[in-house]
Simulated scan of single mutants.
Amino acid sequence: MTIEAIQNEIIDEFSMFEDWEERYQYMIDLGKDLPIINDQYKTESNIIKGCQSKVWVHAELNDDKIEFTADSDAIITKGIIAILIRVFNDQHPKDIIDANTDFIDKIGLKEHLSPTRANGLVSMIKQLKLYAIAYQTQIK
Rank of each mutant, 00 (worst) to 15 (best):
T2Y: 04
E4D: 14
E4H: 03
I6S: 11
I10N: 13
S15Y: 04
F17C: 04
D19N: 15
E22C: 07
I28E: 12
L30E: 12
G31D: 11
K32Y: 07
K32V: 05
D33I: 11
P35G: 00
P35W: 01
Q40A: 10
K42S: 05
K42D: 03
T43Q: 09
I47S: 10
K49W: 08
K49G: 06
G50R: 08
D64M: 02
I66V: 09
S72L: 06
D73C: 08
D73N: 15
D73I: 03
D73F: 07
A74M: 03
I75Q: 02
I76C: 05
T77E: 13
K78C: 01
I85W: 06
I85V: 15
R86M: 04
V87L: 02
F88K: 05
Q91W: 13
H92T: 15
H92M: 11
I97G: 06
N100R: 05
N100E: 13
F103L: 07
F103I: 14
I107C: 12
K110Y: 05
K110T: 08
E111V: 05
L113P: 10
L113T: 09
N119Y: 09
I125P: 00
K126I: 01
Q127C: 03
Q127Y: 08
K129Y: 00
L130S: 06
L130M: 04
Y131R: 04
I133N: 04
I133C: 02
Q136L: 10
T137K: 15
Q138I: 02
Q138F: 01
I139W: 01
I139D: 09
